[in-house]
Amino acid sequence: MRSYVVRRVLQVIPVTFGVTLLVFAMMLLIPGDPARAILGSYATPENVATLERQLALDRPPHIQYVTWLGNVVTGDFGRSYSLNRPVLDEILERFSATLLLAGTALLITVLLGLIAGIVAAVKQHRWQDRAFTVGALVGLSIPSFWLAMIFIVVFALGLGWFPTSGMRPAFGPSGPLTVLHHLVLPATALALVAAGVIARLTRSSMLEVLRQDYVRTATAKGITRRSVIMRHAFRNAVVNVVPVIGVQVGFLLGGAVYVETVFGWPGIGRMLVTAIGTRDILLVQGGVLLVAVTYVLINLAADLVQAALDPRIRLG
């Protein structure tokens, strides 16, 4: 196990390096003068010159990169000109809102996807299988930005069950019920696509395991059907699902951009879209870097969980 963990953790280093390189390159590729882009069109020539010196923009690109990386590692992401506040403060605040949304969506995704996948596999070729298989396909074919609006029309405007937009902070003055009330629609809209993917994978993975000899042996020994499915089949099937759950986190973090826009959720996705509109390049850079590095770590965690569950991986 230890050697696998070390190997997998070491893999993170070149990938993270590549990610920082790509995010840094965004600045070089923006047409025009980067310092002017960072400071906005009303910047004075003196300020532009000062910033150019600070960011080593008059030096070759590799020196610029090292300077930039040094700043980022020490938590200095620069200052957003459109918001006039440090980028780090803004992205951390926004990211906590996104994590609340995406985390809840992940919970729904995993529960819904696993249950639908197990039921479909156990009831293969029966109506439950057909219903869940088609349901999963519908889920993963619906654009989440459209589903979010349909939810608003049906459940907020039509039935009046939920608010149309807005968010309450998880640890704010409003009680957990109010927080949840605002979370249900956006989190579900975000979760359904990923749940479709998980359901399909769980189904095929379960079907494969249910065909194995040891499952037949367990059944032959007279163990209850429920125990065979959950203790013998599911535990082996879920091993293949775990890394894909990690990948789905990427879809949830990305898809959050749409859902945040529709529901007025003050997350990092909506911040990015606004920042692109105002050409606030430091805000875009900081936001993208934070989310990407988080995603790299989540995938690492998913792979480690998979290895912990499956000795074939950690010993192989």
């Binding site: 590549g18 790509l22 965004m26 990305g254 898809g255 951009v257 990015l272 990407a292």
Partner: peptide
């Protein structure tokens, strides 16, 4: 490894970053 780096970004986020550029 280059492909790995592209995969390291959440899908839509990379597209948005590219549009930003």
């Amino acid at each position: 490894r280059g492909v790995d780096v592209l995969m390291a970004f959440p899908y839509l986020l990379l597209a948005i970053a590219l549009v930003a550029v």
